[in-house]
Every structure is written in structure tokens, then in C-alpha cells.
Amino acid sequence: MSEYYRGGFLEDTWVYINDDAPVPETGNVIVSLTRWRAGGACFSDLQGQVGVFVEPDDVFHEHTDRLSKLSLVSLSFPKFSDGRGYSQARMLREQLGFEGEIRGRGEILLDQIPLMMRCGIDAFEVCHEPTIAALKSEALPGIMHTYQSPVNDRFGRLRRWRGQIQG
């Protein structure tokens, strides 16, 4: 079973299911947003949880009430320079009130993790070896002082602008 990072490295109980593969009867599955939207009843037999895999060009305009109640959304970062997932994470947290796990997946580098956390992403599937090594050996290289109101307050000490975050 693979590992992912959420404060420390944890065993991953979630499995990605391709659109053309059948949904298993047990276990936690992550399916594409398209399949989940279309799926409805076909997940009703599942003995486990459903998470959704969101592509950078997916838009959250349908079923937002149901979406916001899922326990996991996985956001894709096909390249480290593709920043769309940062906006999607904030929209999930701030506009849909999503409280489950938001995962970042793809080309994610060490220095980006603190930024992603500030946008509300709280778990990371990291494949870059030096990043994995750094995460295992040392603290995150983030900046504690932030000029913006963080979505997720556990990383930044808030600028006096809004001042409710403790370090």
C-alpha cells in the first residue's frame, strides 16, 4: 500500500479507479468528477467511502451540496507550474464549505507544500524523491508570517489584518 503525506507519512487507504474500470464492492475509492456526477446510484452498494478526482479544468457548478459532503477531493497538479489547483482548493473550502480531506497529487515540490496548505490542501501524494526525503527528515520550509488570511490556520501566523491565528 502506498504512502501519502499529511503532517507525516501515512498509509493510503484510498484507491483511484479509472473511468473504464468497475467500482469495487469494498474499500475507499476515488473516481473522476465526471463519473461521480453521472454515477449517482452506482456507488450505493459500495462498502466504503467515495472521493472525487478533480482535473485542473473541472468546474464546480453542479451538485455542489453533495460534493461538499464528500470525505475526499483530490486535486491534480500535472506540472509544478500549473497553479489552478490552488484556486480550486480555496473555492472548495471557502465557497462550498468543504471540510473533508483535500489532496494534492502530481508534480508537487517541497516549497509548494506550505503554499498549498495555505489554500486548504491538507494531504499530499508526493512523487518527487528529494521532496519525500526532505519531508521525512526536516520541517517544512514555509514562511510563518503571511499577509493574507489563510484558509487553513495551522500553518501561518496571521497578519494583524485579521489577527485570529495563533502561531
Binding site: 509544478f80 500549473d82 497553479g83 490552488y86 484556486s87 498549498m116 503571511t146 499577509y147
Partner: peptide, 13 residues
């Protein structure tokens, strides 16, 4: 300047 400095959402535009 302050608002845009390390604005976490807008560093990979």
C-alpha cells in the same frame, strides 16, 4: 504590495 506578497493562490499563474 502586501496583499500580493507570497499570495499563496497566485504564485503559479
Amino acid at each position: 504590495r502586501q496583499w500580493s506578497t507570497i499570495h499563496p493562490e497566485f504564485l503559479f499563474l
